[in-house]
């Protein structure tokens, strides 16, 4: 986790000179040793990351059977001839389900993920700003304090919210004692609780990229904008936002993508109405033991996520290139 870095212009200039002078930095003649080094991580990721997705895709094209494993084989041999049967039922049933459960839960998941992202951004930006502009010593402490909850168990954090959002929990008690409400309000099992949970758990993932983006901001631009008669709000959108654009996008993707498939938070805090797609997948898999359908749900989710993942990947690469130029 980067704690931000100051950018020194002379450094960058020298780095550019260096790169031009030594093309070897850009074009490296790989040796067998380099390939030996690539081997382990690459093969690991191929087997344990790429291969599983091919398998999911394969299984999503079969139908459920009462067998071990509980799905029909894709390739069968009948009378000596090889038969490949691709079942598209799983996909069609997702879209043509009479109750519209799947479609509705996809839309609900998108909605929850999108709103959570916006909330995280609205809350996270001021926090990141407060961190980035504090004195270095204070900044270290605050930084640690903001990050620390995410190092404790997720379930424990959700559990903590369950205890204070209960009917007789701390929040209701305080609100009643203050006379704001007369009778306890139902917070658990509502969408509100899900939003609170997601924002609480994903906030650090938003704050971190924003923080490191804000650390790199050239604050003299703000002064220049003020000097040229720009109003605060306009200044914010014309100087800070463009400079932290990559941080904003990276943070948003870090919240949006995992939130879309979130299972634990809606399961523990959400009610019947928050049937998100993560829960559907879980239920199909564990309760109904319909592996092919669960796979089809996962593949559909992946298709939805391809665009955000590609955006995140692009941003990551661009930041990387920038760092290369800066080093």
């Amino acid at each position: 986790m980067s704690t931000g870095f100051s950018v020194n212009m002379t450094y960058i200039r020298r780095a550019f000179q260096r790169r031009r002078k030594e093309p070897s930095m850009a074009v490296h003649n790989n040796t067998w040793r380099d390939y030996a080094l690539i081997f382990l991580p690459y093969v690991w990721m191929l087997i344990f990351f790429l291969l599983p997705f091919l398998i999911i895709f394969k299984i999503s094209l079969s139908v459920t059977e009462i067998a071990i494993p509980p799905y029909s084989p894709l390739v069968t041999f009948e009378e000596g001839a090889m038969q490949i049967i691709l079942h598209l039922e799983n996909y069609t049933s997702i879209f043509t389900d009479p109750d519209g459960t799947y479609i509705r839960s996809y839309l609900k998941s998108l909605q929850v993920a999108a709103f959570s992202t916006v909330f995280c951004l609205l809350i996270g930006y001021p926090i990141a700003w407060a961190l980035a502009t504090s004195k270095p010593a204070v900044r270290n402490v605050l930084f640690m304090l903001v990050i620390m909850p995410s190092w404790t168990s997720l379930v424990v954090r959700i559990y903590a919210w369950m205890t204070i959002m209960k009917k007789d929990g701390l929040i209701n008690d305080v609100l009643m004692a203050l006379g704001i409400i007369d009778s306890p309000i139902q917070m658990l099992q509502t969408d509100f609780a899900v939003y609170v949970g997601i924002v609480y758990c994903y906030l650090p993932y938003m704050v971190l990229p924003l923080f490191s983006a804000l650390m790199k901001v050239d604050y003299s631009l703000i002064e220049a904008a003020y000097d040229l008669g720009c109003r605060p709000v306009k200044t914010f959108f014309s100087t800070l936002v463009p400079q932290t654009k990559n941080g904003i996008i990276a943070g948003s993707m870090l919240v949006f993508i995992p939130a879309l498939g979130e299972y634990v938070i809606p399961e523990l805090l959400g009610g019947k109405s928050s049937i998100l797609i993560g829960r559907i997948l879980w239920q199909e898999f564990f309760n109904n033991r319909d592996w092919p359908l669960a796979s089809a749900v996962a593949i559909t989710m992946l298709v939805i996520l391809i665009i955000p993942i590609m955006i995140f990947y692009k941003i990551e690469r661009r930041e990387q290139e920038k760092l290369y130029a800066g080093k």
Binding site: Q17, R20, K21, E22, P23, S24
Partner: peptide, 10 residues
Amino acid sequence: SGCGKSTLLR
């Protein structure tokens, strides 16, 4: 810079 002197040295 870029004349090849560093490459020669390397």
